[in-house]
């Protein structure tokens, strides 16, 4: 990280200067709101933990697995198929479609299944939004291997030989309306492909269904987010509105009680981009291919479901 960047941005998650779009601060008016936002951005920035892969603690994960196994088995009736498609060792980029709002039910179900299948000894990291990692009370996520989403952290994890779970759709996809539950929507984000090519690792698609039924997600609230400068201050493109427990109307989704929707996850055969698209693959072709493969699998999972929530 260059010195200039370090002084310009309070980000501590390893962003290279070139990664982020040029920062546009909220209006430089001396208004109270503007000052409050800048202050908030500073606080969040300072709270983002520096990615230290060593913070992942296998013994801690092992001790927590029974609790998460209980939630996963009894509340979400989780079912994870095809973990045998993940190469037994070596770095791998797990690419998932993201559902369920900020409570991330499918991430929990998948993490439990992955950790028991391959053992807690296998290094496994997950990329998460800055805001998730800076929230007080969620520091335990770091012991599970969650690091702030940035290309730098992703490179670090993969070059250490770990499995890395990314959700290219991020906050954009996770807050899609419930009626778009059966759609994979990365919003055109192709960073994961560049990452896989650069690190020369296979992509294993992880397709999940059920998360979007844990609440009634109404809208992403993109215009609202822009209006409040959330995209510039907190890297938040959305301010979602949903109907969920216990709030009934939930604006922003700072936590809710997920409905016990059945969550089914299918892990698909690994995609080796260079083997399928030649030594210098076209990103658009690769993107369309990965998305099509995942959409097919999601369609099949959707066809299996008879009722919302019940599964």
């Amino acid at each position: 990280m260059s010195q200039a960047h370090a002084t310009r941005s309070p980000s501590r998650n390893g962003h290279e200067p070139g990664d982020a779009p040029p920062r546009q601060d909220p209006p430089a008016s001396p208004s109270l709101l503007g000052r409050a936002w800048r202050e908030l951005a500073g606080v969040v920035g300072r709270r983002i933990p520096r990615a230290d892969l060593d913070e992942r603690d296998p013994d801690y994960i092992r001790e927590q697995l029974p609790l998460f196994w209980l939630f996963s088995s009894l509340w979400f009736r989780g079912e994870v198929r095809g973990l045998g498609n993940v190469p037994d060792d070596g770095p791998v980029l797990l690419v998932g479609n993201h559902s369920g709002g900020n409570m991330l039910p499918d991430t929990m179900v998948f993490t439990v299944a992955f950790s028991t299948y391959f053992g807690v000894e296998r290094p496994f990291y997950q990329l998460a939004h800055n805001l998730v990692l800076s929230l007080p009370g969620l520091s335990w996520l770091r012991k599970f291997g969650t690091v702030a989403a940035s290309p730098e952290n992703a490179r670090k994890a993969l070059s250490s030989g770990a499995a890395l779970l990314v959700y290219p759709g991020g906050d954009y996809e996770v807050h899609r309306p419930s009626w778009e539950s059966g759609r994979v929507d990365f919003g055109g984000r192709k960073g994961f492909l560049r990452l896989a090519l650069e690190q020369d690792v296979p992509i294993v698609p992880v397709v999940a269904i059920g998360g979007q039924e844990t609440a009634l997600f109404l809208t992403r609230g993109e215009r609202l987010a822009r209006l409040l400068y959330l995209d510039r201050v907190l890297r938040l493109k959305v301010l979602p509105i949903s109907i969920s427990l216990p709030w009934i109307v939930n604006i922003g989704d700072f936590g809710h009680i997920p409905l016990p929707a059945k969550i089914t996850i299918e892990t698909l055969p690994a995609i080796d981009l260079r083997a399928e698209f030649g030594p210098d693959p076209d990103l658009d072709d690769a993107y369309d291919h990965v998305l099509a493969v995942m959409q097919d699998a999601l369609d099949a999972l959707a066809a299996e479901r008879r009722f919302p929530v019940i599964g």
């Binding site: 299944a113 299948y117 053992g119």
Partner: peptide, 12 residues
């Protein structure tokens, strides 16, 4: 070995 119990395959 792996053994399916609930939502996970456990073993080692």
């Amino acid at each position: 070995m792996l053994f399916r119990v609930g939502a996970a395959e456990v073993g080692g």
